[in-house]
Write a protein that binds this DNA or RNA. Sequence first.
DNA 1: TACTCCGGGTGTAACGTTGTACTTTGTGTC
DNA 2: GACACAAAGTACAACGTTACACCCGGAGTA
Lengths: 341, 341
Amino acid sequence: MARGREPTVKDVAEHAGVSPGVVSRVVNANGSVAELTRERVLASIAELGYRPHSAARELRTRTTNTIGLVLADVANPFFSQLADHIVRHAADAGLGVLLTTTQEDPAMELKSIELLLQKRVGGVIAAPGTENAAAWRHMRETGVELTFVDRFIDRIPGIDVVGMNNEHASHSATTALIERGHRRIALVSGSSETSTGRERIAGHRRALQEHGIAEDPALVVELAFRHVEAETALSGVLALPQPPTALIVGNTAVSASVITHLRSAGISVPQDLSVIVFHDAEWTALTSPPLTVVRHQLDDLAKCAVEMLHTRLNSAERLRRREKRLPSELVIRPSIAPVRG
Amino acid sequence: MARGREPTVKDVAEHAGVSPGVVSRVVNANGSVAELTRERVLASIAELGYRPHSAARELRTRTTNTIGLVLADVANPFFSQLADHIVRHAADAGLGVLLTTTQEDPAMELKSIELLLQKRVGGVIAAPGTENAAAWRHMRETGVELTFVDRFIDRIPGIDVVGMNNEHASHSATTALIERGHRRIALVSGSSETSTGRERIAGHRRALQEHGIAEDPALVVELAFRHVEAETALSGVLALPQPPTALIVGNTAVSASVITHLRSAGISVPQDLSVIVFHDAEWTALTSPPLTVVRHQLDDLAKCAVEMLHTRLNSAERLRRREKRLPSELVIRPSIAPVRG
DNA sequence: TACTCCGGGTGTAACGTTGTACTTTGTGTC
DNA sequence: GACACAAAGTACAACGTTACACCCGGAGTA
């Protein structure tokens, strides 16, 4: 197990009979170096098994090829698929991804931010919570490039945003239900303090208004992305004197537990309740009935986020803030039906 | 946007009127320092917003509080839940997680290994593929602590392993079917080159033998974790002259697509086919019928892996190789039934 | 001839941190 | 009063890399 010290530029330089600077220029394809020596250096590198030490490089150059990724939790299929795509695209761009999760807990989010600042990551892709605006702003001011994905905090200037067109998606979903005669439509959404929550509620409202349907605040349930609350909140809504005939689940974290609850409560879909959920997880077509979903192009979302960050990292000058909204698609399946007589 | 240089120990030292060494000792709670000066230093740190520069620290101390995590893909709910738990436990231990995915592609796996070596991560948790044994061994010899999780490569010495008791789990699953009268039981598993694939096939065989049932090689389908192959391979098995009456899906990546295929092929579960799948994803109870599953304690798996790695990282001496197997549980649901006729 | 210019190379300092060796001061002991 | 001894602090080098200034020699130009 002869665990020898890892070879350094110096070792390579000596082995190739050249100065360290030349080696550096070879590995970074930087300054000019004679073809012959270049080959000699490359040979030495191969022979010694040299690998640049990124910490040293980062220290010297004050740059990094690592980005941070801050998500609520990666057990939620929405985020996990997003993470998968982001990691892939980042790898394509030569970037490593330091993953942290917040479990929707502001304190953990703060710890994540702290960690990433210490690591001096070059940039961060994050789906931020609502309470650490100051910390995010500070991170940005420290010079860390930041891209918000899916959600964002709008009080912070100069941060790119890539998200879904939530307002539109929610509007379509509600409209689809209204067209089937539904008047009492419940919406389970994330907290209205999050951008996604707000936008989804807004789209829902707009659709109601367009059809002259009065809003009933009791039908809008904001869940701060916690599984436990799902059942109690839901049973409250379903027990209303005038219960809803349709339900939109705009909080991807609780979709499965909502369906579970409906089943155990003996509510049959779509006879008793039409259901639409956000995010087309792999199982949504497997329930009975298959669920109508709002399908997001997660790959595009990830690609955009990585690209935005990457260009920022590689361009010295200060770019204008960009915001990109990706369309989503309503996939109709049997979980919605015309309202009963 | 006054993006000033980040403060360093030197700045803090000057501000507090001490030498840099003292500051270092304060932040690392290392040598002894007078209570009074300690407070003064802490005050300066707070005021200046000092944050240690990890690259510099890593360079100097030749250690890291970052570990690598190498998984096939994090879109597979099995791996994504595992990743979620690992990231959480690692954070509790003060470790950052650099996530890479291989998409089951040996070349990508090699790139991941390369990246992690460059980053000089202190340790790596990995679910390895089969083809890069040499690279993994080399990584270990370089001094990177390594823990294999879920799968492993047994040709490599000195690497800890945390996994499920796959042989036993598979044996239980097959036995449960045999007890219900099934004789022709198909097994969709990962490649028998992976440890999990081998073990699951072995457990299956043992159960068959114990009941004096002849093995039929045509009933064992090895899928190298690729979605596309699932349908064709499966339809082959189902079209056999003597088709199976039961199916065990031991490849978590294809569970959903297998179920989809069964449905589109008009095969009703459990009347035509009893089904058991590995891994209790959040949706397995939501299909109709709900699926019998082999449930793994992913949290324990993650916890063990992180703990093993963590103790290795913090103990100077060379520890003996450890291997831990966690039990899994067969959760019976209506997707299995006594064989017909 | 004297000059600039350029390719190809060397040497050195610096990035921010911490370990080691050293100095200073105070305190208790014989 | 001399001694050892610990506590508290300083100074400096080193980790591996790269940016920068510099040097050398040969080719092109006035």
